[in-house]
Amino acid sequence: MTSILFEPLQLNETLTLNNRILMAPLTRCMADDELVPTDTMAAYYARRADSGLIISEATIIRPDAQGYPNTPGLFTQAQIDGWKKVTTAVHNAGGKIFAQLWHVGRVAHPYFFGEGNVLAPSAIGIEGTVPRMRDLSYQTPKAASTEEIKQLVADYAQAAKNAIEAGFDGVEIHGANGYLIDQFLHYAANQRQDEYGETPENMSRFALEVVDAVVAAVGNERVGLRLSPGAYFNMEPDSRDTQVFDYLLAQLNSRTLAFVHVGIFDDSMEFEHLGGRVSDYMRKHYKGTLVGVGGFTPDTAQRALSEERFDLVAIGRPFIANPDYVIRVKNQQDLEPYSEQMLAELV
C-alpha cells in the first residue's frame, strides 16, 4: 500500500533522495540564547535522517528577521558552526538536509534584535502578541525602502552561502505562511505603489529577486521555495492574489529549482479563487518538482503520490511524535499520536 513512498527520486544531477518522504520544517524554538543550534538539536535531526530529505526548522537570515524566541540563525560564525554539528550528524546517519531561510517581516519584534525598525512591504500591522511571549504586542512595521529591499535580497543570498558552509545540501527559501516574502505576494499586506506593488509583476518582484540571488549564490540545484497561494496565516484573503501567483509560478517555470513546496497546514482546505485545493492549483501552474504537505497519513500520501498530485510529500507533526517515522511506516507499525506536550521535549 505504501510502496511509492519508498521509491527514490532524482531531484537533479547532484541530488537523489532515498524516498519521497520529507521531514517538514518544524519551528521548535530550541536554539540557545545566541540562536546557535545545540548538540541536542543535532541528535534530534540525526534521529530523523531516514527521511528522503529534512527541511530544517525556519532559520533567520539576520537579527531583525526574528519573531519567535530561540529560533536558530545563519548569520554569525557561531551559528554556522552550530549547524555544522547538525549537518554532520545527519550525514553520518545517511540523511540529507536543506536549511529553510526565514525572515518574518511584520511579525518580527524589536525585543529580539534591539533598536531598529520592523520591516514589511507596507506599514500595515497585525493584531495579537508574539507566540510564547504574550506580553509583547505586534508593532506597526515600516515599509521597507528600495535600498532596504536590496539589502534583504543580499542577506538571503549570504545566508544561503552560510548554509552551504555549514554543510547543508541546499536551502529552501521560506516564501510562505504570512512571513516577509509572502507579505509581498498578497494585497492585504502589500499596498506599495512602486516597482514592488500594485501589479502581479511588481508584487512578485521581491520573491523572484531573492530566488535569483540565492540561485546565483549556491546553484539552482540546491534551491527550493515554499509558497502559500491560499493559506492565509496573519493575512486577510483577497481573490486578486490568484493573479499574483499565476504570474509568479509562470516565472518559476523558466527557472530550474530543486522543488517548490506547498505551504499549507491542511491540504483538504479549498479556496474558491484557486479552484479548490492549493496543491492542485500549484500542480496545474507549476511544471517542476512539487512537494505536498498538510495533514497526510501514510495512506493518503500514497494515494496522492500515485495520482501524481505532487512528487514528494512533507510530514510534520508525526515526525515530532515518531523520530523513526519512515521505518514505522515501511514496516506498517502503529504510529505514536502527536500531542502538544511533545513540543516541550526535543527527542
Rank of each mutant, 00 (worst) to 15 (best):
N190L: 00
D280C: 01
M1L: 08
S3R: 12
V347W: 00
F296W: 12
Y111C: 00
G105H: 00
G116W: 01
G294T: 07
A314F: 06
C29N: 06
Q243H: 11
G275A: 07
Y325N: 03
A321K: 09
H109Y: 11
K287E: 14
E127C: 00
G82N: 14
A157G: 13
G219C: 05
N19Q: 08
D334K: 10
I61D: 11
A304V: 09
Q183S: 01
Q10A: 13
H261A: 06
I21N: 01
D241C: 02
V214L: 01
Q193E: 15
I4S: 05
Y68T: 07
A43W: 06
V36G: 02
P237G: 08
F206Y: 14
P63V: 02
T129P: 12
T199Y: 03
P63W: 03
Y179P: 05
M133Q: 15
P37Y: 06
E236F: 04
F112G: 03
D81V: 11
N19R: 07
G73R: 06
M235E: 15
M23D: 05
R48T: 01
E165G: 00
G52Q: 12
S204G: 02
L35P: 00
L274M: 08
R132V: 01
I315A: 03
R205W: 07
T71W: 02
V218C: 07
E272Y: 05
N234V: 07
K85A: 14
F265M: 01
W83Y: 15
A176K: 03
A123G: 08
T242W: 11
G275F: 09
V329A: 13
R48V: 05
H103I: 08
G67S: 07
M282N: 02
Y68G: 00
A176Q: 05
M282C: 00
V244R: 11
L119R: 03
L274N: 07
G316Q: 06
L152S: 11
K150D: 07
V86L: 04
F296H: 15
A89Q: 12
F113Y: 13
E172T: 14
Q193P: 01
F75I: 13
L343V: 04
A31E: 04
M1K: 13
P69R: 07
V36H: 04
A43S: 12
A120E: 00
D135A: 04
L305T: 11
E34W: 12
P337T: 11
V171C: 08
Q79T: 08
F310H: 15
Y44G: 02
D33S: 04
D280T: 10
M133W: 09
N331E: 14
P229N: 03
T14V: 05
K287A: 10
G224R: 08
Q10P: 02
F259A: 04
I149M: 02
R277T: 00
A159D: 09
I327Y: 09
I80L: 03
H174S: 06
G197R: 08
Q302H: 12
T289L: 02
K284S: 09
A188P: 10
Q183A: 05
R309M: 10
Q332Y: 02
N220P: 09
G52D: 11
E336K: 09
T256N: 15
E307M: 03
A160M: 05
E270Q: 15
A189T: 12
Y45L: 02
V313R: 06
V291H: 02
C29A: 06
S51E: 09
T16C: 12
Q139C: 06
Q139M: 12
E195K: 06
L119Y: 06
E147T: 05
L346F: 10
S268D: 14
S268I: 02
T40M: 10
H109W: 10
A49G: 08
R205K: 15
T297H: 05
